[in-house]
Design a protein around this nucleic acid. Structure first.
Lengths: 337, 337
DNA sequence: TTGTAAGCGTTATCAG
DNA sequence: CTGATAACGCTTACAA
């Protein structure tokens, strides 16, 4: 692989000049620049990233730490991050890591000298421990994380509001007995959605009943199992709010198997509004979340910090959601919206 | 940030010794090693990746180039890559890039000195151009790519076989007039699935009719539109094979809207077997593909090449698929399998 | 077993 | 405008 020296020699200039050409300094005569470019092209030269970042102490790379590289949510977030990073000429180094202190710390150590900043997604309630592994005053943006005193910027989804809006909508349709299928126990998003559900139930005077809060883990299988339990209840609810669309899909299939109809016998709604939600039978009422935008915003924040435009001030922001009404709640238009 | 010098000074040894500790050379006395580790810990030191790779000329990072960071397929592939990489102590640098020569080349240039090898997913039929941008004798594994004379290892899915098996299965159920919803025009996987369909139709003596080959692009919307066109045909087919599950889902919803039943009026099948396929109504018959394994295998190949265990010899391998029979084709068990 | 010192490929700081 | 040359943080002969 050709180095800057090879180019310099062949172009009859010093390495400094070649370097200047690549950092488009104005201090290079046009014909010199042209000659260098030509030689570089011919040699297939391009600057060595590691060498560059060694001296500049900037890698032009952002690290992304995720709890697990699984599912549509993750993929959309990464997409948003990649899109924005690429626009700004940054690379993306991804890594999954359980969120306990140790593995987070080791992931971080191995990233030292490789990234300029970090986007850390730590949806676990007890992730505070993990965050302590982070080096002090290292640029970090937290994603979907519980509030902490870490002093880091934090970005998430307005889970509480979204869930609240959904329950209010169902109440508006006349439902008084509404169940929820919860997300993973330790998951912060899930906890917020549950909180939104409970707040709505309390404030709107709906039936509060512990039997209506079923455990789940965001998987289709969990939604299926939970719905079966609901249908077996002595006093069956008239509606169920699944904490994500995957579980809602599982619930839909369970209701069908039981020979009952959605929404007539049981209204079913979800959260996330994944692309196929509108193609389900019946089309799924859900809370829309713009996940790509979440990733893009996190990237914006991080890059702004890196470029010194922003003082990282433990900002905390929740991306708003939108209620998407379709047939599964009993109020939507018939065809795919 | 502490450097190797700081550690050396505080531990009263030379930088060489510290270095040796971190490369677990046997040439360090146990108590010296211990002292160094302690000081390093105390200083929060960890080796600077860029500096290290500058001298060793190994980055312990693999680059992943994808056409677009979109959808479940991508996320599963990355997952497989990340899992295996992490086991071997490698990092993953991802980047999306259109597959034309220029953007692939620029993505590559900017990765020079940052990655030891590359996994390139270039499903476009005319991606040959792009591959030319790759530096000679750079370790590369191609994913889901059309055959080429690039000399690179290439890994993909047995699309032809999967599609063939599906059509044969439908024929076995008595269908003689079977339609296909095609994937994106330029997509190699889509082309192979189409080829499998055509081969089966020809060899099994099914009705061959250009009107039964509908265009699509892997989206739910495309499947929906294609199914509507099929239903409007003067001579309607009795079954339709969608080139992926997303389009199958769109097709299911279109059939329902038309007031018809699956599989009685039209059998519908897909390809990929995404997790929720079994929860659809009716549960979707599909061709199962282990995408995570695909990513993991690609990583294995690449790492083997990097570690000099394998001579990259333009191997070409197609991961086998499995036919998953459920209700939507008219032959499966009633409940979720 | 440890230390010294020469790079790795860049950029930055000076002189010219 | 251009060229020497000293870093950047680390690994690795070669010496001791």
């Amino acid at each position: 692989m050709a180095t800057i020296k090879d180019v310099a020699r062949l172009a009859g200039v010093s390495v400094a000049t070649v370097s200047r050409v690549y950092n488009d300094s104005h201090l290079v005569r046009e014909d010199t620049r042209e000659r260098v470019r030509q030689v570089a092209q011919q040699l297939g030269y391009s600057p060595h990233g590691a060498a560059r970042s060694l001296i500049t102490s900037r890698t032009h790379t952002i690290g992304v730490l995720l709890p697990d590289l699984y599912g549509e949510f993750f993929s959309e977030v990464i997409r948003g991050i990649d899109l924005r990073s690429q626009q700004e000429g940054f690379h993306v180094l991804v890594s999954s890591a359980r969120n306990d202190g140790r593995s987070l710390e080791s992931a971080l150590r191995s990233m030292r000298g490789r990234v300029d900043g970090l986007i850390v997604m730590s949806p676990d309630m007890d992730a505070g421990a993990g965050q302590r592994g982070l080096p002090a005053r290292f640029p970090v943006v937290l994603l979907n994380s519980p509030p902490s005193d870490s002093g880091y910027d934090s970005l998430g989804v307005a889970n509480f509001d979204g869930a609240y809006a959904m329950i209010r909508h169902l109440a508006g349709l006349g439902h008084r007995r509404i169940a929820i299928i919860r997300g993973a126990e330790q998951n912060f998003d899930a906890a917020e959605r549950l909180r939104g559900y409970r707040a709505a139930v309390a404030e709107l005077g709906l039936e509060a009943d512990a039997a209506l809060e079923l455990p789940g883990d965001f998987s289709e299988a969990a939604g299926h199992a939970a719905a079966l339990r609901l249908l077996a209840l002595p006093r069956r609810p008239s509606a169920v709010f699944a904490s994500n669309d995957g579980m809602a899909i599982g619930a839909l299939s369970a209701v069908r198997e039981a020979g009952l109809r959605v929404p007539e016998d049981l209204a079913v709604t979800g959260f996330d509004d994944i692309p196929m939600a509108r193609y389900l039978d019946p089309a799924l009422t859900s809370v829309h979340v713009d996940i790509t935008a979440l990733g893009a915003s996190a990237t914006d924040w991080l890059l702004a910090t890196l470029q010194g435009q922003e003082i990282p001030g433990a900002r905390r922001e929740m991306l708003p959601t939108t209620l998407i009404v379709r047939r599964s709640c009993g109020a939507g238009a018939p065809g795919p919206a």
